[in-house]
Design a protein around this nucleic acid. Sequence first.
RNA 1: GGACAGGUGGCCGAGUGGUUAAAGGCAGCAGACUGUAAAUCUGCCCGCGCAAGCGUACGCUAGUUCGAAUCUAGCCCUGUCCA
Length: 413
Amino acid sequence: MTQNTSAYTSSLLRLLSERGYIHQVTDAEGLDALAAKQIVPGYIGFDATAPSLHIGSLVQIMMLRRLQQTGHKPVVLMGGGTTRIGDPTGRDESRKMLSDQTIEDNIASIRQVFARLLTFGDGPTDAVMVNNHDWLGKLGYIELLQEVGTHFTVNRMLTFDSVKLRLDREQPMTFLEFNYMILQGYDFRHLALHSGVRLQMGGSDQWGNIVNGIELARRKDGQEVFGLTTPLLTTADGAKMGKTAAGAVWLNENALPAWDFWQYWRNVDDRDVGRFLRLFTDLPLDEIARLEALGGSEINAAKVVLANEVTKLVRGADAAAAAEATAAATFAGGGVGQDLPSLACPDGSIALVDALIGLGFAASRGEAKRLIAGGGARVEGQAITDEAHVIMLDAADVRISSGKKKHGVLRPA
RNA sequence: GGACAGGUGGCCGAGUGGUUAAAGGCAGCAGACUGUAAAUCUGCCCGCGCAAGCGUACGCUAGUUCGAAUCUAGCCCUGUCCA
């Protein structure tokens, strides 16, 4: 779906299109015209199932940022109400329910990240955060059926991918989950009616849900609203973004240290560098084109830029600088950096096995031993293959490594 | 409520009484090669233990058996069809 950029007159669609955010738009010309003449309030919904979003949501967050950058108004919709139901999209099993308190806590925690990337306030293009529990929670069942239920046919609902997937796999889909798309449609209509929102954006898997909302707004209120989706973001080797060995790449600092966050971007596949720079940084396009063109091992310089820029946006400039310095000291200098995970060793000695576990490089003693036996454990850069090895510490820090990328420090307290 | 089919390690998926801590694949970890990349090849991949070994594990519970993931009964859960 790559429209030619020059066809757009609004800076919003031009920017989104140039940087690779657009997969589908319901009415590109209509939206373009609207964005060219007025402030378009646009929203994206986010789940509140965890205390932090991960980088799978970063495209959406960045899209809200682009919206604001081009003079429009971002609306962050927290799914306080819909999280109580659970989005069946992309899931082949039901998800367990969360308590109200957990959901509220999650929303508060997630909010911190948005505050870094968007400017909140009361001005016409300031971002606002809303919670759909505020209106969904008030809806009675009968009321919901009357208001919304009459505009959805089961025939149509059954054709949605999220539903078909379950049915095809002969997995259960509860009636509760089946209602998710109705509520999401209701959100759009509600925001269009009460907050002047004209655009919903989201991942390509949200297309169906978005279209539902558009139809609902049109049928109930005669309101014309628009939808836009981003391409499904996978890494060059086809994996969904945001999952790594250790788990998800969380946006919140307390869920994932800045060092690990920075490292994720530093280790991105060569083929992803340009695309990620466009999506996840504010660097100008010609600068990105230059970085992307770097060949061979020079592309590593571009990866450092990517890691720095993204970390700066999400975690702050200090975090980015510290991570870069640590990387330089650790990988180029063969020393240790401040940001590496560390373990205090007050006793003056520690078994290598315990050090590996303490630093989080191994989950059990057996795993640590296997790592050592396989030649993957290093002390001060020297591979140690003796499982019973004990490290003696004097005054200085000792550098422990698992493989080539994971490094940590033992501090003699 | 009835009939039938199922519930195996992070995921997929073999396995119908002992040689099964459970084939194979994916994911993951490490080694080699490199550029903290990809691809490829090699090793590892439940826990404790130096080890012999021990402990857990095939939906849950109770049985049959010298011995069960495999057989029996009850229960829970899921799917398909019927009411």
